[in-house]
Nucleic acid binder design. Structure first.
Lengths: 170, 170
DNA sequence: TAACGCATGTAATACGTTACATGATTCT
DNA sequence: AGAATCATGTAACGTATTACATGCGTTA
């Protein structure tokens, strides 16, 4: 059950509303975790009931801003340090890249080109985010993850370019 | 619903039993898709009922070997070419690498070292698989995916080594 | 004032995991 | 003969998606 730890992590970093947490899963965390609001709101209520999160402010439109409590941070750290990671993944993009070899070269080229377009757009977005990050002088914390992202983007772009080229030649 | 396309893909590549398909999800496909036998057997029955897969042999222990039919391959290709990929991921490893910045440097170093050990073991396994692949002279098809795997392994190993080093210095 | 985005919630359905259950074959 | 592994299946439970539902606040 990682949803609660994802939420606790985000709330430890910075308090936020359920709505904002849902946006984080659509944005910078899209490659790590995803959940929709219908899952998030009940889970926040549970976290509060268990004392792992608390409401630290109420805003317009009856919005509630949650933050992780001390117990919440403790639980997050316990999870990170003491539990065995579940390495099994369900990554539709990876699955498609695997299955693309079931296609004829011409079809394969078309699919790979679409993938290349997606990946290079994502890479550009990530570079923009990094630039904004640096401009704001946010040095610590998540900067290393952006660096990892850049390197993965480069690997994906190179590899897809090569595969498109190979499919063209066949 | 990607499970069925994962199964169709594997069965297009090579006919197999439910048991063998489950093993594929534990092995070479662990980074792409995962499903347990209790999900696989009913889905194979559905695929057969819909004419997308068929039983091509029966072995000992009342095992049934399935293969994709023409309609199954067609459906797989349609899915690859015409449907919009769902890019949302749920990757516990990535989530943990994100959340590790919520730890104190000393704890962080310990967690990152465990991750490094895991990744370098996975990289070694992948190299062994590639060597075996090459020895058997399997040139086409999935060889490019192994190459992508090698490059990602290298990125992960380098990055984790750097992060361990950084956590040590802090 | 109408449209849009913010913000929260519940219900029905689909998908996935864990536990239960059984039996055949192979290896020691 | 007993243990391990192969092989298949179902049931109960937990998690995730999609659809339904409501209302506030801002901006054109």
């Amino acid at each position: 059950m990682s949803l609660r730890h994802a939420l606790l992590g985000l709330l430890t970093w910075k308090p936020g509303t359920g709505y904002e947490l849902a946006q984080a899963f659509e944005g910078s965390l899209i490659n790590a975790w995803h959940a929709s609001h219908s899952q998030i709101y009940p889970e926040l209520a549970k976290l509060e009931a268990e004392g792992l999160a608390e409401v630290v402010g109420e805003g317009p439109r009856r919005s509630k801003t949650y933050a992780a409590t001390g117990a919440g941070l403790e639980e997050l750290r316990r999870w990170l340090m003491e539990t065995e990671p579940n390495r099994a993944q369900r990554n539709e993009t990876a699955l498609r890249w695997f299955l693309v070899y079931m296609l004829e070269p011409e079809q394969r080229r078309a699919v790979l080109e679409r993938e290349y377009a997606f990946v290079s757009a994502a890479a550009a977005e990530r570079r923009a985010l990094a630039a904004q990050f640096d401009a704001e002088g946010k040095t610590g914390g998540f900067r290393p993850l952006l660096e990892l992202g850049h390197r993965m983007d480069a690997v994906f772009e190179d590899w897809l370019r090569e595969q498109v080229e190979a499919a063209r030649k066949t």
